Amino acid sequence: MPKLTDDELGELLRETFADREALVDRLPAATKRPSRLPVLLAAAAVLAVLAGVLYGVSRIGAAAPEQPAATPAARTAKDDAQIWGAALDHMLRTVRPPAGWRSVIVLDLSDVGKEHARKGPPISAAQRALMTRLVRTAAPIQFHGDMPPAAPTCRDSRVGVVQIFDVVEKGDHAEADVALFHDCKHWQTAKYRVEKERTYWVVTATLAEHSESW
């Protein structure tokens, strides 16, 4: 770029800081020369430094560009089994006979024409095995497709019957409903918030619960 004369450089600065021309008139003269060039150069230098500092501060304090939200991975049959297992484990520890559970029957109503039947596919053998492992420290469980005769639960208050419902996907978490019948006269229902932590699903909140006796 060719070297500019004082007048050319002054004109360039005046155009750049045209809205501040009035301020220049009020600035003290930098030299005895009638030209305003030294004052304009000083003002330009200060503004350049301040602009650089502000730019640096804004870069330091600025948040990283927001990344688009990751699309949740599709829930698998294993996920459903873990969600049911977590909900069952929480329920069976919350409602527990003094001497512990002798046995808990889990109803899979997916293929039975009941009013509250699940809409999803029947619980597979792999899912049942996983759920059994997840709940084993709370209670031994077994699976049935329909409500068993009332006699076993009435003879032994340590035997319970559980009905599970379809897992409801809520974006960043899932919800699972569980209903427990025990001692021939007690119903306990609950809706749980279940979230995935690393590779396992855990109950993080009780969203609703209700108990009834007769």
Rank of each mutant, 00 (worst) to 15 (best):
Ala63Pro: 09
Ala63Leu: 12
Ala63His: 09
Ala63Trp: 10
Ala64Val: 11
Pro65Gln: 07
Pro65Ala: 12
Glu66Gln: 14
Pro68Phe: 14
Pro68Met: 13
Ala69Ile: 12
Ala70Ile: 12
Thr71Val: 15
Thr71Ile: 15
Thr71Tyr: 09
Pro72Gln: 14
Pro72Tyr: 11
Pro72Met: 13
Ala74Val: 12
Ala74Ser: 15
Arg75Gln: 12
Thr76Asn: 05
Ala77Pro: 04
Ala77Ile: 06
Lys78His: 09
Lys78Leu: 07
Asp79Ala: 04
Asp79Pro: 05
Asp79Val: 04
Asp80Glu: 05
Asp80Met: 01
Ala81Tyr: 01
Ala81Trp: 01
Ala81Pro: 02
Gln82Pro: 03
Gln82Val: 03
Ile83Gln: 00
Ile83Met: 03
Ile83Cys: 00
Ile83Arg: 00
Ile83Val: 08
Trp84Gly: 01
Trp84Pro: 00
Gly85Gln: 03
Ala86His: 01
Ala86Ser: 10
Ala86Asp: 01
Ala86Trp: 03
Ala87Ile: 11
Ala87His: 02
Ala87Arg: 01
Ala87Asn: 05
Leu88Trp: 02
Leu88Thr: 04
Leu88Arg: 04
Asp89Gly: 02
Asp89Met: 04
Asp89Ala: 09
Asp89His: 05
Met91Leu: 11
Met91Trp: 00
Leu92Phe: 08
Leu92Tyr: 04
Arg93Pro: 00
Arg93Asn: 06
Thr94Arg: 10
Thr94Met: 08
Thr94Pro: 05
Val95Arg: 04
Val95Met: 08
Arg96Asn: 13
Arg96Ile: 09
Arg96Glu: 09
Pro97His: 10
Pro97Lys: 08
Pro97Phe: 05
Pro98Trp: 14
Pro98Leu: 13
Pro98Gln: 15
Pro98Thr: 14
Ala99Arg: 13
Ala99Leu: 11
Gly100Cys: 11
Gly100Glu: 06
Gly100Gln: 09
Arg102Ser: 08
Ser103Leu: 11
Ser103Trp: 02
Val104Ile: 12
Val104Ala: 06
Ile105Asn: 06
Ile105Cys: 03
Ile105Pro: 03
Ile105Lys: 05
Leu107Arg: 06
Leu107Tyr: 01
Asp108Cys: 05
Leu109Asp: 05
Leu109Val: 13
Ser110Ile: 04
Ser110His: 02
Ser110Ala: 14
Ser110Asp: 10
Asp111Arg: 15
Asp111Ala: 15
Val112Asp: 09
Val112Pro: 02
Val112Glu: 07
Val112Leu: 08
Val112Arg: 07
Gly113Glu: 12
Glu115Pro: 08
Glu115Phe: 12
Ala117Gly: 14
Ala117Glu: 08
Ala117Pro: 06
Ala117Asn: 07
Lys119Asn: 13
Lys119Gly: 10
Lys119Gln: 14
Gly120Gln: 12
Gly120Met: 14
Pro121Ala: 15
Pro122Met: 10
Pro122Tyr: 04
Pro122Thr: 07
Ile123Thr: 09
Ile123Met: 06
Ser124Gly: 10
Ala125His: 07
Ala126Phe: 11
Gln127Pro: 04
Gln127Leu: 07
Arg128Leu: 01
Arg128Thr: 00
Arg128Pro: 00
Arg128Gly: 01
Arg128Glu: 02
Ala129Trp: 11
Ala129Glu: 15
Ala129Asp: 15
Leu130Tyr: 01
Thr132Asp: 02
Thr132Glu: 06
Arg133His: 07
Arg133Lys: 11
Leu134Tyr: 04
Val135Glu: 05
Val135Met: 09
Val135His: 05
Arg136Met: 14
Ala138Cys: 10
Ala138Leu: 09
Ala138Phe: 08
